[in-house]
Design a protein around this nucleic acid. Structure first.
Lengths: 219, 219
DNA sequence: GTTCTGCATGGCGAAATACACCATTTGCAT
DNA sequence: ATGCAAATGGTGTATTTCGCCATGCAGAAC
């Protein structure tokens, strides 16, 4: 078959029809790319991938039925060579990390231009990793904070740090935590500092956000 | 002028380029509708509306610079006959009510099909009110429940308070919010106080917790 | 045994933030 | 007009943050 007939096959998973249309339009503007299917839910997505065996799956991270990251894991289990690119409205590097660890090759913010979309798609198709620039910054900060991405970013934390991280996630203030652990607020403060360095966040508010999010995932 | 030359003029305000493309594509599929402009921020939107005097403005409710509802109010102040249709990723009738009170004629969920999009546009252009079916249900349930906006504690919040609540939920610190909204930290501070009173929480940490949780339910 | 390293602890001072109370302005409704 | 709600932001005090540094205490390395 010639290049004419063998376009790259892409499927789009997003629960907003209007967003699917936007993505589709930009992709179809490239002569060598083709959108061979769309779906709004995880189950539809799995069927679609099985049936059409696409080169790339574009996945919105905030799918209502489960979430996009869970879908990434399920697709990986299908044992295909299909590449995956996550599209997200969140800037947090938290999700980028999880998406990449789950098996996606790329993480793109919805705020990015359409040129970036195409760039991300082509990068991922080559088998390389793509992450939106501002999200990359946060990831880099994380790496500089200590070590190369391990299995779990929380793994780098000491027991005491993790304990405090969980208390933050439960909504306790610094003074409340200090009182609870019978240590001074200075101590909790220092731990908060170290947590921020290790987790690559720059403000206390972000640390709170990350801690609370992390609580919701693990119960 | 004939129908050929006098297409209905529509502008699109959304900070996701990909979403703008999707909306544009569907609108242009209608022979009598034309997209005469796009913008990502409030200020750009105001300029665009002044310059092109469109028949309809399509507004994403979750604009980063301020929010969609504030933009609706600002456009209404321009004293044009321009109709406004809010597009939202949130299903809460909470936002629909605010949007309509602010001066929008329609409220459409992003989960709706593209057929609904066109239907909503045409309804609003006729000067009638359009609200997405499932959101309508919630609105009706509210009215039947006698008390306006009964069980949702967020209902007692003003538009501004809700906006700040959402920014807190997104992980922004007080100063970051102040900078983003171009107001003093004192103002944000006062809003935080009022939020705590209205939501019945006693510490700032709890407010953060509540805001972040609330984001994850509806974001 | 000494040295090195990692962890928990916490003190210090400047800057930022929270907190409670209050004043002004604007818009809206009666 | 009068009254009310909303948004803005100022004041003063208390608390927290933030970066830096110091101590004590383990266990591992030499």
């Amino acid at each position: 078959m010639t290049d004419q007939t063998a376009k790259t096959k892409i499927v789009i998973i997003d629960d907003h029809p209007m967003m699917r249309d936007g993505l589709t339009m930009r992709i179809l503007s490239q002569s060598d790319l083709d959108v061979c299917g769309q779906a709004a839910t995880q189950d539809e997505a799995i069927e679609l991938v099985k049936d059409s065996n696409p080169d790339l799956v574009l996945i919105d991270i905030s799918l209502k039925s489960g979430n996009g990251i869970e879908l990434v894991k399920r697709i990986r289990l299908l044992n295909t060579t299909t590449k995956m690119l996550i599209v997200s409205a969140f800037q947090e590097s938290l999700y980028a990390e999880r998406a990449l660890r789950a098996g996606a090759l790329g993480y793109l913010n919805k705020q990015e231009t359409n040129e970036k979309l195409i760039e991300a798609i082509r990068t991922v198709l080559r088998g390389e990793t793509f992450v939106s620039p501002d999200t990359t910054q946060r990831l880099v900060a994380q790496v500089l904070g200590k070590k190369p991405l391990a299995n779990d970013p929380l793994a780098v934390l000491t027991d005491r740090e993790l304990e405090i991280f969980r208390l933050i996630g439960a909504g306790f203030s610094t003074s409340a935590i200090a009182h609870q652990l019978f240590v001074s607020t200075h101590t909790v403060d220092t731990h908060r500092e170290n947590l921020k360095k290790k987790l690559g966040v720059k403000s206390g508010a972000e640390l709170n956000l990350k801690a609370i999010h992390s609580m919701l995932e693990s119960g």
